[in-house]
Design a protein around this nucleic acid. Sequence first.
DNA 1: GTAGGGTTAG
Length: 784
Amino acid sequence: MRYPPKALHGPLVKAAKYSSSPNLTMKNWRGKSTTYIVPLGFHNSRSFLVRIAIGTLLPNTFTIMQFFHSPFIASNTSSPTIISGSPSSSFGNSTLNLALTNFSSIISSGAILPTTFIPLTIFISSESIKEAKQLHSLSLKTGTFNLSPVSSRLVSLYTSQPINDLIYARSVFDTIQSPSLPLWNMMIKCYVENHRSHDAIRLFCDMLTEFPPDNFTLPCVVKGCSRLCAVEEGKQIHGFSTKLGFGFDKFVQSSLVSFYSKCGLLDCARKVFDKMGEKDLVTWNSLIDGYARSGDVETARKLFDEIPRRDSYSWTALLHGFSKSGKIEAARDVFDKMPTKNLVSWNAMINGYMRSGDFESACELFNTMPERNLITWNSIIAGYEVYGRFEEALSMFLRMLQEEEDDFIKPNNATFTSLISAVAASAILSTGKWVHSYMVKNGMAIDGVIGTLLIEMYSKCGSIESALTVFTSIHRKKLGHWNSVIVGLGMHGMADEALELFKKMQESGIKPNTVTFVGLLNAFSHVGYVKEAHLYFDFMVKKYGIEREIEHYGCLVDVLCRTGRLQEAKTVIEEMKIRPNKVILMSLLRGARMFVDTEIGEYAAHRLKELAPECYVALSNMYAAAGKWEKVSEVRETMKKKGIKKEAGWSLIERKGVIHRFIVGDRSHPQSEEIYAKLKEMREKLKAAGHVADTRQVLLRIEDEKEKEAELELHSERLAIAYGLINNNNDKSPIRVVKNLTVCNDCHSVTKFLSRIYQRDIIVRDNSRFHHFRDGLCSCNDFW
DNA sequence: GTAGGGTTAG
């Protein structure tokens, strides 16, 4: 039977917005919307429902009922009756629930047999997954689920925009024995729109055994290919579509232009474009965007001038092209000249400024723009994060929560990606915990990239326990999660645990990659496991077939240097196929400084000089340790000449959301007096415990040992620890200190003593790793 | 019965 049944002329309208118009004809019935309304109070609508109910009218879908204020159907009648009410566009859940209850009770009362009820076309404006699930379970309860019209309608309901739940959609789809072509198309589209293009293409391949693709299928899969940059697959589909006779289909060809543009194959894009008979604006825009993206702004501009008619898309594409290729003034010029600016163009301009590091101009636009959306906020937050301005990233996030509370702008994965990275870099555990709990409270899924980032964040904030908790809670652990936790354990000097997890990871069937080995080798180097480092350095190539990269060499050299095997490290550097980088040579120099080997130190410094100014500091430290004071002054002279300054050391400690930052000999803190009193107490207790100051690393030439000791005593981390001991004395939680430089020998040994004397765990993050001090020992085994 | 291609964040 065809839609609409003849008897139903007139009274049927297609959507709420038309419901007030009295003269709608059957054309509307076949309109685009899947939601139809039977206007209440119309005499024919009753007969419509009765006919459906008694089965003389057989709609073939499980369409859904759209309700008005008053309940649609009375439960105590043998056939549905209509209660008139005024149409309204707002439908509360309670109305829906009442109606669903009514349906269920009609069925269970036996008033209508399920068989006659089944084909009943119910119209509902389903806006939420909850409603969809109610219908789903209703169909299961009544046994109508297995009827293909019903299950088909459910798939399209689950894939429809407000719901868009592809897991439910797919599970229903899989129960349908032979899905129709439109249903395949819907499912494929749903995957592409949810950034699951791999699955879309897989499904497309399955489909090919049943149907040849049509003009609906092809643009979808082509879009999937461009999302994935799957050039070969896209080309195959191009050939295929030509064979099938879609060579002149406007939409198919246009999607191909977009595909080639996005993948940077401008020549191919141009070929398709030139062959197209009628080019519409969308196709022009795709091509302009393609040229702009590839950096060929000249051609983009030329094309832009050729377009017969412009709207704001073309302008924004051009603007984006300029800003992406660093021509920010040209972008601004386009922005200023645009006849009409929309939110997207504002966002593109703001993003351009943020990328170029012009925060002022970005903020100026941000503050004056007429409206903002999630992308606006995300651009700003991400921009701050990328430029290392973590506090600003965080405060923008807080501002977003505050200002957009009522506007339904909620942070999403993109927001948290930037935010978590910012928190990880600033290493404030309490902020990290707050962000995490915010996410949990707001129902964000902790998996995928977000899970990886959270593990990394907790590791970097010094709480490996929380990192492990997050890791354990992730159900489907992927390679990234394993890598992240292995790297984290390494950072905390927990090489044995890292190794154990590495084994578990393989047991669970996940193959390690190059990052996994960086994590492992790094873990070994942090605790001085030379044997293991050699072993896995070998394994990764021989057993796992993974090529060594500069980072792997870096870790091996590092562990050799930390354990005093300087000659061996030098040999590795000389024999490696890759050119040694700054990190590797710095390792060698630091090793030379620690084991006072000036010959190797000079070798490293010689190769380093062109690369890194900070090597001078390490070099002068080495000479100081060797007592070669002439050399120290020589290096310091050079530093002065070249204008190189030693990075000022600082340490910070957080308490109740406030960050306290100390520098050497700092007396600016309000609690300074107490801190210095504590330092005095510490000095006495240290002496009593048998600590002897290690003055080798005092950079300045101070002859008097007493003075040297005094200099060490005022190192910023000691001030921070003293502050921690004073203020966090009641609870026994660890004292967490973040430091921008590497901990010096003497502070390391002092902190070990302090952890025993005061029976407090002290966790220090320096510029490369964590030290967990407990009861007189450090997790790094004194290799750092 | 789908409603298809283009611009901004990650």
